[in-house]
Design a binder for these strands. Structure first.
Lengths: 126, 126
DNA sequence: GTCCATTTGTCCGTATGTATA
DNA sequence: GTATACATACGGACAAATGGA
């Protein structure tokens, strides 16, 4: 598992890779992940970049991290539920797409509102 | 200036403050937030810390950020959801966001159609 | 019990990339 | 083409929590 140069942001790829390792059973529930330092060395990234990747998985509920102890795979996560749609790379893609769409719609709304003002619309939306 | 864990982390407080400003109506829907640079100066924090705070609100669906434009308050946010749980995690559900987007796009479509009717169809030949 | 190494979490300052206006 | 603004990455630093010597 290595990072691809042309694809998405490195920290997202880190999340994708580790998520895949959990889904494949390579990292069993309750297992301890390598420290951020080790992961940073493995991926050739800064620790903070790895940390950002782990943050995604934490928000997805796949892992649990405790200062002084380490980062562990949630023990109540069923690998089958990952492919079913609980948390997956597909959901990450969807989320970013929805965010992008939301921004575009927001912008369109303002522009349309501006046009309606210029047009001197008499008929409001009933 | 040691950060006592007595209070919550600064980036969380940034999110809390701005969330409160949105909830109170001080920052109206569609309004443009100050740039990250300005907010960093206002709070006396680094830009990255402010950015982390805004990321929370973005994931909650309260704001929308676009590079080169700025950060804006979502216009289709229901104020009731803010008072309900402080942080409305339910609003970040993909399905509800898609539903909201679909409804907004539909409204925009009819408004644009109305504008096109008023404008006549002469602009098509450019 | 105290000291210390490990580990996560956060902040800072800077730099680069990319999209917008 | 230039300026603005968000997004990410890096390296260094410190705090808090855990665990072992």
């Amino acid at each position: 598992m290595t990072l691809v140069h042309d694809e998405r942001a490195p920290y997202v790829q880190v999340a994708d890779i580790i998520r895949a390792e959990i889904a494949s059973g390579e990292r069993a529930p309750g297992a301890k992940l390598p420290s951020v330092k080790k992961l940073a060395e493995r991926f050739g990234l800064a620790e903070m970049t790895v940390h950002s990747g782990l943050r995604i998985l934490r928000e997805e509920g796949l892992i649990v991290a405790t200062p002084g102890r380490g980062t562990f795979v949630r023990s109540d996560v069923d690998p089958a539920s990952l492919e079913a749609g609980g948390s997956s790379r597909a959901e990450s893609d969807l989320r970013s797409q929805v965010e992008s769409l939301t921004a575009t719609v927001e912008q369109l709304s303002s522009r349309v509102a501006e046009l309606e003002k210029m047009a001197g619309l008499s008929a409001m939306t009933d």
